[in-house]
Design a protein around this nucleic acid. Sequence first.
DNA 1: GATCCGTGGGA
DNA 2: TTCCCAAGGAT
Length: 351
Amino acid sequence: MTPPSTSATLAADVVRWQRAQGRHGLPWQGTRNPYRVWLSEIMLQQTQVSTVLDYYPRFLARFPDVQSLAAASQDEVLGLWAGLGYYSRARHLHRCAQAVVADHGGVFPATAAQLQTLPGIGRSTAAAIAAFCHGERAAILDGNVKRVLGRALAFGEDLAVPRHERALWSLAQDLLPPAEDMPAYTQGLMDLGATVCVRRSPRCGLCPLAARCVALAQGQPEAYPVIQRKLRRGQRQNTLLWISQGERVWVVPRADTGIWAGLWSWPEYEDEAQARQDCAGWPGQWTALPAFTHVLTHLDWTLTPLHLALPPGAEAAAWPADRWPQGRWLAPAQWADWGLPAPLRRLLGLA
DNA sequence: GATCCGTGGGA
DNA sequence: TTCCCAAGGAT
């Protein structure tokens, strides 16, 4: 458990490299504010830095601290998250903020073990927050670290097997530097994985670990890490009923589980016939729009928008209001701030 | 342990 | 085009 004190360890190489060559200007760096670090870690889960750069400042401007976030409505949180994907992150983020306020006096707990008990914070995220904010010697194991350490150690076991992933996690824990170096080390592993030790064509000539990298010595850095994913993407088709009246669009809340849980969308049907049948007798102009495929991690989802333009007037507007009491009309000025999934934002011309 | 959960980008 | 994956976690 005692960290090595020499200056010739793998961790020391990473720390030196990070201070000289790593990334230092990202919006969530240069702070030990747990709220800001936590927010960035959640947004960055399975999401590239370039994407988060668009969302992080806006979210922080609206919710500058954990109290303001805890006091917000879930709809407003999801409105700021819309387009980022993996919306359970936003729902857990909101619940986590409320738990921090209600159970911890508005102060994030300081240890990784305590952080990991909060909604949406798993082992790696908890370690990152504790390392960045408090120098705790806790190991992260994200995609970057799997690649950097997987190659440096030539770890050949299949990381899709939880037992093997735990083994690499244990090795990662053994490699940690002294506490004062933990922020730079944790950031350095991420920076290395993102800019040097990349998935294909790694830039080993620039890597501070090249001299000790076993995979490079074997002449096959790209052979690691081994992750045998057996996910087969399924297929699904639906018709989305796009109802408009003038400039307004009718939206309904989605279920609190499944795809786009907690967001708003258009009424969803098995096919066009069922949509038309459900709205038999309604006034207005029907238009069938071209289908498109929305690709999710585990699903190719073919969506066919079916447009119904209702005539003006309160009488026509009452049809959807009567059919979906939980729904509501959205004016164009509201679209950008509403919790609408990416394909709908695109169809509405917000992309 | 296996599955579910978004979106955009790179090769 | 197709595949992979990007600061994973919950169920």
